[in-house]
């Protein structure tokens, strides 16, 4: 793979955060390059939000450091914060103020001139119809939009977003996804976002960091992940033991696995699929179904992190959209 020569915009070195006995983040080393959309994927409690708080110097690391745009992130890192837009938690807007007033307040705090900055953020986030509504009367999704708008006001070089689509409806999620892609593509904005929603990550990230129990398990480009994922022929059969014997003895296939006693996955020789099924039938094995599949990010994620309690990413059916069944 060719070396990526783009400037490193975010770098963490040995970043560690302990809350008493809880090791929220452990020796995290990651790099994010200019214009990249980096998705930090993990289950609830994996350490995603803690990492984002560390990046923004909202909490102090137990060890290690964060550098953004060449500035070490410590409290009052003004020079860096001027070039960063961020949204953490439910966006932190003032409920007693209207959407317009919140954006104006942010504009004043950022020392920006009146005018197009706010208008542009309003348009980008689809807030036109809510401008004169008090924020505390908005839905969670729309509050999220306001927070997003505030994060974009200073036309940041780096956007740091904690669960940016949290609470949004499907249209809102698609809008945010499109906006993030657009910001990266057209303005070369570097985006670091956390998510536990696999489908979201799959559709917009250039690089995915998988975090689990505070540790970065894997940091891979999405294209690389796709290459690494293997296609397979899945045969659901009446007798997996006999099917395994037939594939091995009659067809000479070695590259297969038996799945939970009900199916066999063959990872090579797909052009011989007809021969496999014929051999199985001849061996007295009933074939219930046969189809080509691709191990997707979800499978990969589950493989890395395992299933268990709180495993929303792996268990929420609505999020299981990553599979490409043929």
């Amino acid at each position: 793979m060719p070396t990526d020569t783009r400037e490193v915009v975010i770098r963490t070195e040995g970043l560690t955060k302990h809350f008493g006995d809880v090791h929220a983040v452990e020796d995290l080393n990651l790099t994010v390059r200019r214009g990249e959309v980096y998705a930090f994927l993990g289950r609830n409690g994996a350490g995603k939000s803690t990492t984002i708080r560390l990046m923004l110097a909202l909490i102090k690391p137990t060890a290690g450091s964060v550098e953004i745009l060449g500035h070490r992130m410590v409290p009052n890192a003004i020079r860096a914060l001027e070039r960063i837009g961020s949204m953490v938690e439910a966006a932190g807007s003032y409920g007693n103020l209207t959407v317009r007033e919140n954006l104006e307040l942010q504009r004043k705090l950022l020392g920006l001139r009146r005018g197009s900055w706010v208008d542009e953020a309003v348009e980008l986030c689809g807030l036109e119809e809510y401008l004169d509504r008090r924020v505390d009367t908005l839905s969670l999704g729309n509050k999220q939009r306001v927070g997003f708008g505030r994060a974009l006001l200073n036309k940041p070089e780096v956007l740091i977003l904690d669960e940016p689509t949290n609470g949004l409806d499907p249209v809102g999620i698609a809008d945010v996804r499109a906006l993030i892609k657009r910001l990266a593509a057209e303005r070369n904005v570097t985006v670091f976002l956390s998510s536990h929603i696999l489908s979201e990550v799959q559709q917009m990230a250039d690089t995915i960091g998988i975090i689990h129990n505070g540790r970065l398990l894997e940091e891979i480009g999405y294209e690389e992940l796709r290459r690494r994922n293997r296609e397979y022929l899945e045969l659901r059969v009446s007798d997996t033991k006999r099917a395994a014997w037939a594939l091995e003895e009659k067809c000479g296939v070695r590259d297969f696995v038996v799945i939970e006693g009900s199916a066999v996955r063959v990872y090579s020789g797909f052009d011989r699929a007809e021969e496999y099924t014929r051999s199985l039938v001849e061996a007295g094995v009933g074939i219930i179904s046969a189809h080509m599949s691709e191990e997707n990010l979800e499978d990969h994620f589950v493989k890395l992190t395992g299933r268990g309690s709180g495993d929303e990413a792996a268990e929420t059916p609505a999020e299981k959209t990553g599979g490409s069944q043929r």
Binding site: L58, P75, I78, E82, V88, A90, G92, L109, L110, G147
Partner: peptide
């Protein structure tokens, strides 16, 4: 209580 302390702390203005 309203979570706006986080937004304030990420602004390019000193916390003091």
């Amino acid at each position: 209580r309203e979570g706006t302390d986080i937004a304030s702390a990420t602004l390019p203005i000193s916390r003091g």
